[in-house]
Design a protein around this nucleic acid. Structure first.
Length: 633
DNA sequence: TCAATCCGTATC
DNA sequence: ATACGGATTGAC
């Protein structure tokens, strides 16, 4: 007898079904293999979850049709993880398994994989971590087979791929495996190179969406067969099968690429942390910035902080100057920014100019003091709903008769973006200096250590080949700070730090000029290179306002009848607060449900059950359920 | 009286 | 989803 998870997208069928195993399949039918079974009259794919002696099932059992391949692609550990992720996100196991296990590629599977005799990995010298007081102990704990958990704030100029490679090497030295996730292909390339240096050429694989199906499956199998102890990759790699997991790590967890866009929309950070929790592995969340979720892990004591002391930060950081937006005669650049660029270029060092991408939807702010407007009723963000009218994007109440809590101003205005021109004019302001751009369509990996001007959008900063940029200019900060997003401050600081961290130390002439009001907390955090301080503040604010990660939220989106139907079918736990519904795109609407963190599992399970009732009834219109979505506003 | 159709329920 | 059963409808 075998318990099977059938691959169907129906919420009410999200439970194992028992099948008899034909004698000829008895040997191949091991936990984790793909199978075909006859289900409700048709042949469907599925995974064999476990073998068992007896079935609880009252009726007659059918035989499974066949074992698709003897390869047990779903390890027990990943099966358990997938179940936990499905439960947390009110989704189905089949949906999560579709994210976790790549499609089979028979040729890649058949290719005989030579077993390489992998030599032992030397315990790394924790030299690279000596600038962080808690760093060497963290590496020793990994090397000794323990499971330390840390939130790490990287120093400016830190070679973060090398530091993560140290941690992976320590883990591998202890005889265990590691999984590391990064946001994009460029970060993956850097980490890949660092791991090759630290572990040798054949001790890890890199998984990314860019690989073709054959290569993706080949590398997945290399990990599943235990031929490599470490797997690195983008988002989907968090489910990679690694035997005897000792470490999960993630770089720059605030990047929104870590949010999975397919149901049930799990976040890579949450998957990895769940995995560490379930397996007893260590965990490392690193970045130049710090997410509010990371601050929460520190606040609850789940993880410990790895930071350098303030003296070290000051020694390694560039000088950060703020300036008002008072365009001088030079390419509409503030005088201070122009001077900093001019000096850096004269010294023969590269200059980085970061400008926000176009197309952000700015929040509505006080026309007088620029304080973002918040709803008087629920503290949600206020946005324009038409010419001259504004309303809360959470509860839908119109923001008529608005009074700014900061300055008493009565008028609102939308922020105006679109100053990329300013950056382009820079080229003309510095004749004879080479100008590069790095953005969405065309990311530069590196820039040479010579006078040159690089204009980039956030996240596309080229890494300097030399000791760092002589000057980094952060323009149009207003556009980032007034985004209609709950995470605007955290996100703005994350992006500025990503650029500022590439500047030389102040002692070597490194300068950052940020065109913004020095009094803003986000700017203060940048000036002091102290993202932990801002994240702790933001966490306090989320607690006061009742936003994640201080609470658990569920977002229900669909046509009005579908949303109402889903809520009506759900037996919500006590204390769940309903916000909305508010109109969404395409005639749909969105309803938010707020629960305490402790009620989070009950909320998710109530929604999952309600979705099951609806799918059993063949409800026509689907309602999308998302737990703690990033675009909460 | 018998088939065509609709709805509800189970799927091992 | 699909498949089946039982109730319901409609034509001979």
């Amino acid at each position: 007898m075998a318990r099977i998870c059938v691959d169907l997208p129906l919420a009410h069928l999200d439970r194992p079904f028992d099948y008899l195993v034909p004698a000829e399949s008895a040997d191949a039918a091991v936990p984790g293999v793909r199978v075909r079974v006859r289900f409700a009259g048709q042949l469907v794919d599925g995974y064999l979850l476990e073998r068992a002696g007896e079935s609880e099932h009252e009726g007659r059992l059918a035989f499974l049709d066949r074992v698709v391949s003897p390869e047990p692609v779903l390890s027990p550990e990943v099966a358990r993880l997938a179940r936990a992720v499905a439960d947390r996100y009110a989704g189905t196991l089949a949906d999560v398994l579709r994210l976790a296990v790549p499609p089979r590629h028979a040729r890649a599977e058949a290719a005989a994989a030579p077993m390489e005799a992998a030599g032992p990995v030397a315990a790394p010298e924790p030299d690279g971590w000596r600038d962080y007081p808690a760093g060497p102990a963290f590496l020793r704990a990994l090397a000794d087979g323990r499971a330390p958990r840390a939130v790490w704030t990287a120093l400016p100029g830190e070679d973060w791929p090398a530091r993560i490679a140290d941690a992976v090497a320590a883990t591998v030295h202890s005889g265990r495996g590691a999984v590391v996730a990064v946001a994009d292909a460029r970060d993956l390339d850097r980490l890949d190179a660092a791991l090759r240096r630290a572990l040798g050429p054949d001790r890890h694989v890199a998984l990314s969406a860019a690989l073709g199906p054959a290569e993706r499956y080949r590398r997945f199998l290399a990990a599943r067969r235990g031929r490599v102890p470490a797997v690195i990759g983008t988002r989907a790699a968090v489910f990679a099968p690694v035997a005897d997991l000792g470490l999960v790590a993630l770089w720059d967890d605030g990047d929104d690429l870590f949010a999975e866009p397919r149901a049930p929309y799990p976040h890579a950070r949450e998957v990895l942390l769940t995995r560490a929790q379930l397996t007893g592995a260590g965990a490392l969340l690193g970045g130049y910035g710090r997410s509010v979720e990371a601050a929460q892990l520190l606040a609850t004591g789940w993880a410990k902080e790895i930071v350098a002391d303030r003296d070290t930060v000051r020694r390694r950081a560039p000088a950060v100057h703020t300036t008002r937006d008072d365009p001088g005669e030079h390419a509409r650049l503030p005088t201070l920014a122009w001077k900093a660029a001019h000096e850096a270029l004269s010294a023969g060092t590269p200059v980085l100019v970061q400008v926000p991408r176009r197309g952000y939807v700015p929040a509505v702010a006080c026309a007088n003091c620029f304080t973002p407007a918040r709803c008087a009723h629920c503290r949600g963000p206020v946005a324009l709903t038409g010419p001259g009218t504004a309303a809360c994007r959470w509860c839908g109440r119109p923001a008529g008769g608005y009074t700014c809590p900061e300055c008493g101003g009565r008028r609102l205005r939308a922020a105006v973006v679109g100053a990329r021109r300013t950056a382009e004019e820079l080229g003309r302001a510095f004749p004879g200096v080479p100008v590069w751009t790095s953005g969405r369509d065309g990311v530069l990996a590196t820039v040479p250590d010579e006078a040159g001007l690089t204009i980039c959008t956030p996240g596309a900063e080229p890494v300097p080949e030399g000791p760092g940029y002589g000057a980094v200019l952060l323009l149009d900060t207003w556009a980032l700070l007034t985004r209609a997003d709950l995470r605007a401050s955290e996100e703005a600081l994350r992006r500025w730090l990503a650029a500022a961290a590439l500047a030389r130390p102040a002692g070597d002439g490194g300068v950052v000029v940020v065109v913004a009001d020095a009094g803003l907390p986000t700017i203060q955090a940048l000036v002091r290179f102290d993202p932990g301080w801002l994240a702790a503040r933001e966490l306090d604010e989320r607690r006061e306002l009742g936003f994640p990660p201080a609470v658990r939220m569920a977002s229900l989106v669909g046509v009005p009848e579908a949303v109402a139907d889903l809520v009506a079918a759900a037996h919500l736990p006590d204390g769940v607060l309903t916000l909305g519904p508010v109109p969404a795109a395409d005639g749909r609407e969105r309803l938010l449900l707020r629960a305490s963190r402790s009620a989070g599992p009950a909320l998710a399970s109530a929604l999952r059950e309600a979705a099951g009732v609806r799918s059993a009834r063949k409800a026509a219109d689907p309602a999308r359920i998302q737990i703690d979505p990033l675009d909460l506003l």
